[in-house]
Structure formats: structure tokens, C-alpha cells
Simulated scan of single mutants.
Amino acid sequence: MVNSLWFKWKSLRLPWRKSFLVGQDLAGNTFWEFKDQLNAGRYRRIVKFDPKTHYGDVQVTPQWHQWLRYVRPNAPTLEEQRQDLVRQAQMKELARLADERWASKPSFLEKPKTQQQAPGIAPGPTTSAANIPSEPTTTTADAPTSPASAPEPEPTSPPPKTQKEINPWAKADKKGPGDSWQPEAWTPSSQR
């Protein structure tokens, strides 16, 4: 109550006053205007903060900074400053949600966690030995074999590589006439 009365008294633009209180921010900093001694037609704008605060710890909000630099003509109100804090909190929450969405997507830089199917195999549910019903097995040669006991096909070797596929830089490996050239050391001439 005493502070608000003092602020109201200091903000009155009485003719004998040299400086006028314009407002304060949520951190307790006060902002003042005073007539410039050299240029009497212009008001100077300053911020006064708690003297116990280190210069590096003083935080001036963007609205007050705009007022100090004459970008905005009117000082921001306390309500405007509170709304800006709410806006900043909403932006931080939206940024956190965006980061979570980004982190949940798979990265193209990481190795895939699942094996890709070989070409020619139709995608579908995988079968395992536990899912196949057990059938009686016979040892005769003409009896059909179950899919679980079918022999695995032998992997085929890749086709032989052509000369172009073997080493595309084969021409670059050959030595050229300038490969052994080295520059000479510079020696200044004594001619003038």
C-alpha cells in the first residue's frame, strides 16, 4: 500500500520535479523519465533496479526495452506484462509438445531396428515352428515334406562383376606425368 502511494506520488508530473516515475516491471525494476540538460525538449529514459542486484543479473523485458529505446511511445502496463508471461508459458508448452512429436518419429540416421525382407518374399505374417501344427513325419522318399522341415535354399552367389563395377577409380590410380612434380623453393633475385 505504501509502495503504491509512493509510486503514484512520484509519477505526478509536477513542474518542479526533475524526474518522473513512468512504471515498474514484474521484477521490481522502476522506469523513469527526466529532462535532458543539453536538449531540454527531449526526455531521457532510464531503468533503476535494486542496488544489490549485479549488473549481469538485470533482466529488462522486451516491452520495457522498446520503451527505453523510444520504439513505443507508451509504457507497458502490468496487465500487458502478465499476459506476456502467460504467452511465454504457452509457447514453452507448445515447444515441449513439438519436441516430443519430433522425438517420437524414427530418425533416418539411425539403423533400422527390424530386418528387411528379402526380395521376392511376399509381406505377411511370419511363421514360426510354434505356429505350425505338428504332422506325423514319414521317412519314405515319396512322402511330402512339411514346410517346417523343408530344406533351406542355398544362397546363390552374386553375378560376376564387370570391369566397370570392380573399381570405378581405376583410371585415377594410374600415375600421370605431373604426379611426381614438386614446386621449387622461392629465392629472391638480387636484381634491382
Rank of each mutant, 00 (worst) to 15 (best):
V71W: 03
V71G: 02
R101I: 01
A130V: 13
P123E: 01
S134Y: 15
P151A: 15
E135V: 14
E152A: 14
P133V: 09
T138L: 10
P136V: 11
S149K: 09
E152G: 00
A150N: 01
W64L: 06
F108G: 15
L85I: 08
D99I: 01
S107P: 02
L94Q: 15
V58A: 06
E93R: 07
I121L: 12
A89M: 00
I132M: 12
A103Y: 00
A129F: 14
P123V: 02
Y70M: 02
S128G: 09
Q90R: 12
G124E: 04
Q117H: 02
G120Q: 04
Q66W: 06
Q83D: 11
G120P: 01
Q83N: 12
M91E: 15
T114W: 09
H65E: 12
A150R: 11
T138R: 10
W64C: 05
A129M: 13
T127N: 08
P123N: 07
L85Q: 15
P144H: 05
P147T: 08
L68D: 06
V86W: 04
P112Q: 09
R87N: 02
Q90Y: 04
P153R: 04
T126N: 09
L68G: 00
D84S: 09
I121F: 08
T126E: 12
F108H: 11
A103E: 09
T139D: 15
A75D: 03
Q59H: 12
W102H: 13
L94W: 03
T145E: 07
T114M: 08
V58E: 08
T138W: 10
I121E: 00
